[in-house]
Computed example of a mutant assay.
Amino acid sequence: MKKYLELMRQFDLIKSIKPEEIESYLSEGSCNITEYGKNNIVHFVGEFCSKLEIILSGKVVIERIDESGNLMTIADFYGGDVLGGNLMFSKNPYYPMTVTAKDATFILEINKDRLFQLFSDNHEFLRSYLEYVSDHTVILGDRIKHYVNRTIRESIISYLDYERKKQNSNIIKLNMTKKALAERIGVQRTSLSRELAKMREDGLIEYTPVSISLLHKFFKDCVRIMV
C-alpha cells in the first residue's frame, strides 16, 4: 500500500486527496487498484465506462484497427494520465476503441459515486480534474482527426508535425523501432518504409535510423493536409 500512496503523491490530480482518505476509500471499495500485465486489454471496444481511472505506473495505449486490418495507435498514456475522464459523463459512455496495457501497469479506479463526492467536497481536486480533461480532450481529438481516414503520407506528415511541435525541433528524434512507428501511424512496416523513401525522393524529408529531418517542402504539404 505504501508504494502506491507514494506513486499517487507524484500526480497533481491526486495530491489534493489526503493519504488517509485514499486508504479509507480503498478499504470501503469506492476506490480500487488494479494491475494489468503487458499486452493485457484494459477495455474492449464498446465496453461501458463506469469509473475514472488514473494510471499510477506503466503505459497504456488507445488502439483501433482500420478497414485494411492495420493496427493504429491513437494515443499513449503514462503515469498521472486519466482514462474515462470525459467519457463516463457522456450520453453514450462506451469505449469507442480498444485500450491496452503495453507494459505492466497499475491503475487507480474511482467509482462514479465517490468521484461525485470528491467534486463536491474537494474543490482543488475538481479544478485539477477539469483542467486535465479540458486539455487532453483537445489533444486526443486532434490526434484522432489527423490519423483516421487519411492516406499513408498524410498520416506520416500528421505524426511528424505532432512530434515537431512536441520536440520543438525540425529534426525529429525517433525513440522507437520502425515496427513501433508503423503501429503508431497505423500502417504496415513495409508500407511505412516505402512511403518514407518516396517522401525523401520528393524532397520532403531526410532520415537516418534515429531521426527524421523536415525540409522546406514538408511544410507546404503539412499546411495542405491540416486545413
Rank of each mutant, 00 (worst) to 15 (best):
N40T: 13
P19H: 04
K18S: 15
F11S: 09
K15F: 07
F11Y: 15
G46F: 07
T34K: 12
M8S: 01
L5D: 00
E53K: 15
Q10E: 10
S30E: 08
E35A: 12
K3A: 07
D12S: 15
V45Y: 06
I14C: 13
S27A: 12
C31R: 03
L26I: 04
I22E: 00
Y36M: 05
V42K: 01
K15H: 06
P19E: 04
K18V: 14
Y4E: 10
H43P: 08
F48I: 13
G37S: 10
S50M: 12
K15V: 07
E35Q: 11
E6N: 06
F48S: 14
S16G: 12
L52G: 06
K2R: 11
F44E: 15
E6H: 00
I41R: 11
C49Q: 11
K18C: 11
V45K: 12
E47H: 11
I33G: 01
E47N: 10
H43Q: 14
K51H: 15
I33H: 02
K51R: 14
S30Y: 08
S27N: 11
K2Y: 08
Y4A: 06
K18T: 12
V42R: 06
S24N: 12
K18N: 13
G37F: 05
E53Y: 10
Q10K: 14
E28F: 02
E21M: 10
E47S: 11
